[in-house]
Simulated scan of single mutants.
Amino acid sequence: MTSRAQLSPDHILACVLAGGQSRRMGGGDKTLLDIGSKPMLTYILERLRPQTNQIVLNANGDPERFTQYDLPVVSDTIDGFAGPLAGILAGLTYARTHCPDVTHVVSVAGDTPFFPQDLIARLTAPIPDKKPVIALATSHERLHPVFGLWPVELLDDLERWLASGKSGKVLAWVDRHDSIEVAFPDDPETGLDPFFNANRPEDLDVARSALEKASA
């Protein structure tokens, strides 16, 4: 499989997935909870903005609560909180509608503040030139399907998949297509798995401790 020259940032849209119901955190927008001195979403965007020129936020409900971030907010187009695939579909749909030069969407979880600062460069590097291929992140031999590179070319297939009531699990749909895995080391600043996610209140404490250690 021959790789293309690395995709230009102009061809990539990053989509932060914050459309879940945060049940294990007690509901609400966990991405807006403070870790350290700032909301988790602020840390996420500080890592993401140097990597790409275009970012959207996938979130449901009133978009006004994210006004301070000055980002387009796109809601799921599939009813019923269909999970990360619904957010990925929302990002792909936005790209096709508003960003004609974008060929790929990179998804980033809204509860993972220490994801790699070279995430996009490394996900895009091995993508072949001739066919749509999905790239998924791994660490410690574990797959993280919410962190992926998604060809806009696959939008229609994903839309049909979800509209027909098929599984909302990311890997169930990924298995229909060619995909590759890209391994990442631990975050050098915090020492944590780069895809550590804050699902529960105690995870926020871990994130805060890691930030304190990194800034000491």
Rank of each mutant, 00 (worst) to 15 (best):
T77P: 03
P100D: 15
L57Q: 00
A135Y: 07
D156K: 00
G28V: 07
P145M: 13
W150M: 02
L57F: 03
I88R: 08
E64G: 14
V170E: 07
V146F: 08
I55T: 05
H11F: 15
G168Q: 13
T93L: 10
G80H: 09
T42D: 11
R208M: 13
F184H: 03
Y94M: 10
L57H: 00
L119Y: 05
L17M: 15
L13Y: 03
G80R: 09
V16E: 03
L158C: 14
A82I: 12
V102Y: 02
H177I: 13
D129I: 07
A121Q: 15
E141S: 14
N60D: 10
H144W: 14
N197L: 11
A59P: 00
S167I: 12
T77Q: 11
C99P: 04
D62G: 04
H177G: 06
P9A: 01
V105N: 01
L149W: 00
D175C: 12
N60P: 07
P151C: 06
R49Y: 09
T138R: 07
T2V: 14
S75M: 07
P63L: 13
A109Y: 02
L204G: 01
D178W: 05
F115P: 03
G27M: 12
G83T: 13
S3K: 11
T52Q: 10
A135E: 03
T93C: 09
T52E: 08
G148D: 01
R24H: 12
T103I: 09
L7V: 06
P63A: 11
H104T: 01
G168F: 10
L57E: 04
I127N: 06
I134T: 01
E159H: 12
S8D: 13
G26Q: 11
A183W: 00
E64R: 13
F115I: 07
V16S: 04
S179C: 15
R200K: 15
T2W: 10
V105C: 09
V16D: 00
I120L: 11
A14H: 10
N197M: 13
T124I: 01
L89A: 05
L45H: 03
P84G: 13
L155H: 13
L33D: 06
A86N: 12
T93K: 08
I120K: 00
L92S: 06
P132F: 05
T67F: 06
V102S: 05
T52Y: 03
L41S: 02
G27P: 09
G20N: 03
G110S: 06
K130M: 12
L158Q: 00
M25C: 08
G61S: 11
T103Q: 14
A5Y: 05
D101K: 02
W173C: 10
